[in-house]
Design a protein around this nucleic acid. Structure first.
Lengths: 248, 248
DNA sequence: TTAATATTGCTTCATAATGAAGCAATAAAA
DNA sequence: TTTTATTGCTTCATTATGAAGCAATATTAA
């Protein structure tokens, strides 16, 4: 079915079941190939890239809405979600739905609640929906041109992620269960957008006492095989309460 | 005019001018008498305490709404505002409007966007409105019993304030232009809810290089007169970009 | 089979920051 | 004039950080 027809059909039902003027947009982060990736979809026909998002049922709260929307996209449940900002500018929609009647659900003024989500890249199975013709991971420095204000939603998500690196279990939710110290460092470097000293990172991470060193190493790569670690989730959560780099 | 009548009259107009299902609630912090205070209002007749809040005009964004609502309450413009969370639970309203018809604006399901505001206590003139019979500052450890979920909105505001102490100009916006080192320390201690070592606080604050020491001291109190300082706002803003206690 | 290579695990040394304690100066009160 | 509590600022011991490097090692090349 073509885009316009789908949109108009959905619109008719939307008024009854969703909270008006409100949507949720999610910046879904995954870590793969020493790169931070983001989930993006392309809308049929109008050929614009967007962040996964959706509306809020009258029967659910925001977190439930975001979970439902992401479950439909990824097949994953209990995804780590963090709300970070409401996008409420009057002109944020651009002119995407200009040719539609004013009663179209999608053409209303929408405020969008931005969530970032952290997923284990390998646990996600991308699911297409009926208004998209593409749904894929893109590296954060090769993002497509986004529709509406989705670029600034992404930007704010990344800034928030950076600020919360010492307060939230970001490594735990982005990395697979077992990982190496160089992988963890790379993740930190990408999020912080700066190089870190290898020896000092190693020393500091170990002193936090939140990692469990496993009796395995990651064979197969060139050069010396790095040790594998996993998070000691109890100690990790406890340390995060105070913040990993406690200021005062 | 009595509460019910006012509410019903307002409701009729509200449907036309406000974005439905959405409100803004503000936790307004002020610092006075070595105490952190919060602005609270009491609703007429139903005799419940609430945070200052209001609805969002169809012609404004959230920040503009919060500014307008607080200007009406305090007479102050350009108040420092920080959005921190959307409160969206289904049962958050309690039963405050049970006896009203279902078409009443206020009885709809509302999501509330929480902002915290920082004001110079002495620059604020409290203004009553027509549905309140009290509007006053309360010390944060002597808060009244709040209606709806306003207590948890306050709690989250304070936690956010604590987390952002190294990233946002919190001291600058809460203190008067001139202040003493012990006052600044007291503010930090209240927000962090813990005692700080005096000499170390002094040394650390000076090393940040964000304060200008004035050629005056605060006379009149008992004992030695403390020096007066003001923020070097340019250096302060610059230092905040990296975070006052940079973790990485 | 052996040597070369890049990476990793971990340490060392110099410097900076922090925690704890205290001394001298001072403004008001006794 | 003396007492008092507070303030400005320093000292010393401890801990954290920045920069650098050495030995071990898994792969690849010779």
């Amino acid at each position: 079915m073509e885009f316009n027809k789908i949109i108009e059909e959905k619109s008719a039902k939307a008024w009854d079941i969703y909270i008006p003027n409100l949507s949720v947009d999610c910046v879904v982060f995954g870590f793969h190939d020493v790169t931070l990736k983001v989930l993006v979809t392309r809308l049929k026909d109008i050929d614009l890239w967007a962040l996964p998002g959706g509306y809020v049922l009258k029967t659910e709260n925001l977190m439930e809405a975001a979970n439902r929307i992401l479950f439909n996209r990824t097949g994953a449940e209990n995804i780590y979600l963090q709300e970070f900002k409401v996008f409420s500018d009057l002109n944020r929609s651009g002119g995407v739905f200009d040719e539609f009647p004013d009663t179209l659900w999608n053409k209303q003024r929408f405020l969008s609640v931005g969530f970032y989500a952290l997923v284990d890249f390998h646990q996600v199975n991308l699911v297409m929906d009926d208004i998209s013709d593409a749904c894929e991971w893109k590296s954060i420095d090769e993002l497509p041109h986004f529709m509406m204000d989705h670029r600034s939603i992404f930007d704010k998500a990344l800034i928030t992620l950076r600020k919360q690196l010492n307060d939230k279990p970001i490594g735990y939710n982005l990395l697979p269960e077992k990982f190496t110290m160089p992988e963890l460092q790379k993740l930190y470097e990408i999020i912080l957008a700066k190089k870190l000293n290898r020896g000092n990172f190693y020393r500091k991470m170990l002193r936090y006492d939140i990692l469990i060193k496993l009796d395995e190493s990651r064979k197969g790569g060139a050069h010396k095989a790095p040790d594998l670690y996993q998070f000691d989730i109890e100690k990790y959560e406890k340390a995060l309460k105070e913040g990993l780099n406690n200021g005062w």
